[in-house]
Amino acid sequence: MKSLAELKAIRERVQNQMELRSDDTDKTRIVVGMATCGIAAGARPVLNEFMQEIDKRNLSGVSVSQTGCIGMCRFEPIVEVFRPGEEKVTYIKMTPDKVAKVVTEHIVNGRPVSEYTIGAAEGGK
């Protein structure tokens, strides 16, 4: 070890990986529906894409987890985004292609991508 800067570099790199273990509750949560219906509709590639996007952008304070069937199987894959202090946003019929946009617009900049949300689908009926 040569310098404090070198130590700091290691610290910051590993801190990101360990952040998941913190108990603080003001994290952004991305929840992917991963019941039978979700998996059949292709939820897994979506989940993987989210992980890769987060890794690529080196985002901190974001966790990705799965949940069971939400009850609207026809809209799967469904992804819910919980930002601290904000209302939940539900994205439907997600594909890996849509993920990058959700991450940049919503997770990073705080503007939900309304055309992917359940609201847009219901309204457009």
């Binding site: 070890m1 310098s3 404090l4 130590l7 290691i10 610290r11 590993v14 801190q15 360990m18």
Partner: peptide, 23 residues
């Protein structure tokens, strides 16, 4: 932390005190 991984210790401010003391 995983005690067998020095980087996890460093991520929790490990060896920062030693660095501070020495420099």
């Amino acid at each position: 932390i995983n005690p067998e991984n020095i980087e996890e210790y460093i991520a929790r401010d490990g060896y920062e005190a030693l660095g501070k003391v020495l420099t």
